[in-house]
Amino acid sequence: MGLLRRGQSLIDQRRTAPRQWWQSLLYHAVMLGFACIFLLPFYWMAISAFKNNAEIFANPVQWFPNPFRWENLAALVSRDDFPFLRQFGNSVFYAGSVALAVCFSCSLAAYSFGCLRWRARNLVFGLTVCALLLPSVVTFLPIYMGWTRLGLNGTYWPLIAPFLLGDAFYIFMLRQFFLGVPRELMDAARLDGASEFRIWWQIVLPQVRTPLVIVGLFAIVYTWNEFFGPLIYLQDREKFPLSLGLFTFRAARAQEWSISMMGALFTALPMVVLFLLTQRLFQRGLSSTGLK
């Protein structure tokens, strides 16, 4: 392999010439087909949210809600057994707090791992990577029992407080960006007599403003969708975030599909909108976690 057979190169060049129009057409047909398959669940959720039960299970299928039942939306926000607005607020609070905590705590650790030289740094960072791969199932029981003993079971403390100290995934992600900050910048500040804390705050953090936003966005999406933590720590419906609220509602009222679908729609919608608005940042974040 690797040897170029000269005799064939002319023929081959023709092959790599611009694609035929029908090839392009075929490509887009296949891709649009895939796109439809991937979008179908979203579409089905959206139209079912505006139908009643009979229309959801109608045969033949109604591909468009007729009539559009806006009253489902009104029903969603006025039910006692599914305090949607309250839970929406809880989710905003939960995701927002975790994002802020993560941006602060992880930027400290990532700065240390990415920009400062100290003994045992590689060891501690290695342990961080191990923690990243450690299945959470093997740690959550003692943590749960600890929070219960502290009497904080039933509050948001167990769900948010650990992030004040950091999180392996976000530290790993942020470190990739901190590695890119030129060392000369910090050395120059050091020669000028700036304290290490000031270098972090005034020199380095402004350099990684965008990565911090990226990490915050990832934290928001992950926390918005988090299910297991709220399930084991929260018992009061008024305190549930949306994912748990939706689960509990559907478990109790399996037949009320319109409300379940409307709830699912408005649980997913904020993240979809957030993503569409910040797509570029998301992709930068992803390529930083991938291997390079």
Partner: peptide, 12 residues
């Protein structure tokens, strides 16, 4: 720098 390194990584 080494001291700061430990200090910044301490919470984590």
């Amino acid at each position: 720098e080494a001291r700061a390194g430990v200090l910044f990584a301490l919470p984590w």
